[in-house]
């Protein structure tokens, strides 16, 4: 019979030590991916290390002009943090598309990221917003932009013994905002056929000063479509600029055909959603 140990450390250091000591260990945040995978028999970790008892990892803090979201913070708590919701409505709405209210009362955005699903909803939104993962490990702390953390479905850039302690987002910037949308056959409890996040900063004259567009479910990992953002910078979102943006979005799509959607459909929908989220982010930025 296989056995599994369960640990609920109280400090980051303790968690690091436990993780380093057992190569087959898995970190547990909300458990809404981990426990489902364990029950289905897909994984059988030798040890499970719960992060929820580490006080420092729960909650949103405003720090050095930015926001630090502890790795054990439930998605619904993001909505309750007014300043965060005002600064990054796209990230907050993406996190609150995950599953259902019950799921979101457990699930975390760090877990969403570290589960490394290509369709994870909060990830494109975080990438667009310029989020950085704060990492603890046996070799000390380091930081990694969110887009570099997932490596392939189910695999991350975390070294053995490392885990994410928090996600850091920039503070509120003037004339800046973001948005996220996904396409699913159902309105809830579903997995994205495609998801698109956009963060837009407007210049004083209403033209595009900066744009980051990120895509989910159109490749093995969520991607930052740099050319798509670049196609908007300096424009006033004219039809031609939006067309170039949409083409650039489609150019980075490398989806697969599967039961959830054909590659052609996913690619076409990435462009449709990109236009929609750019429009929403732009409107929000104008009001911000």
């Amino acid at each position: 019979m296989s056995t599994m140990t369960f640990h609920a450390p109280a400090t980051v250091a303790e968690a690091c030590a436990l993780l380093a000591a057992e190569p087959g260990a898995r970190v547990l945040a909300g458990g809404t991916d981990l426990i489902v995978q364990m029950r289905s028999g897909r994984i059988a970790p030798a040890a499970v290390i719960d992060l929820k008892r580490i006080g420092a990892l729960s909650g949103v803090r405003e720090q050095a002009g930015g926001f630090v979201i502890g790795a054990a913070t439930r998605c619904t708590a993001l909505k309750e943090h007014a300043a965060l919701a005002a600064a990054h409505p796209g990230v907050v709405e993406a996190a609150n598309l995950i599953g259902s209210v019950q799921v979101r009362n457990r699930a975390t955005v760090a877990g969403n990221l570290c589960n490394a699903s290509p369709a994870a909803d909060s990830v494109p939104a975080m990438i667009a917003a310029g989020a950085v993962a704060l990492i603890a490990g046996p070799q000390g702390a380091r930081e990694l932009p969110v887009e570099h953390l997932p490596q392939s479905p189910g695999r991350t850039a975390l070294a053995p013994g490392e885990f994410v302690t928090a996600i850091r987002l920039p503070g509120k910037a003037a004339h800046s905002s973001d948005a996220y949308q996904r396409l699913t056959p159902r309105t809830e409890m579903d997995i994205a056929i495609v998801g698109v996040g956009a963060a837009i900063t407007l210049a004083g004259d209403g033209s595009c000063a900066a744009a980051r567009i990120a895509l989910g479910a159109v490749g093995p990992v969520a991607v930052l479509a740099e050319a798509a953002g670049a196609a908007l910078v300096g424009t006033r979102f004219e039809a031609a600029a939006l067309d170039r943006m949409a083409e650039a979005v489609q150019a980075v799509c490398k989806p697969i055909d599967d039961k959830r959607g054909s590659a052609a459909y996913r690619t076409a929908m990435a462009a449709v959603l990109a236009r929609r989220v750019v429009q929403i982010a732009r409107e929000r930025a104008g009001e911000a």
Binding site: S100, P185, R186, T187, E188, I191
Partner: peptide, 16 residues
């Protein structure tokens, strides 16, 4: 059966 679960066997949920 490639969708043997409620995730990919999509019965409507309340919000639908």
């Amino acid at each position: 059966v490639d969708n043997a679960g409620f995730l990919d066997y999509r019965m409507p949920v309340c919000s639908d």
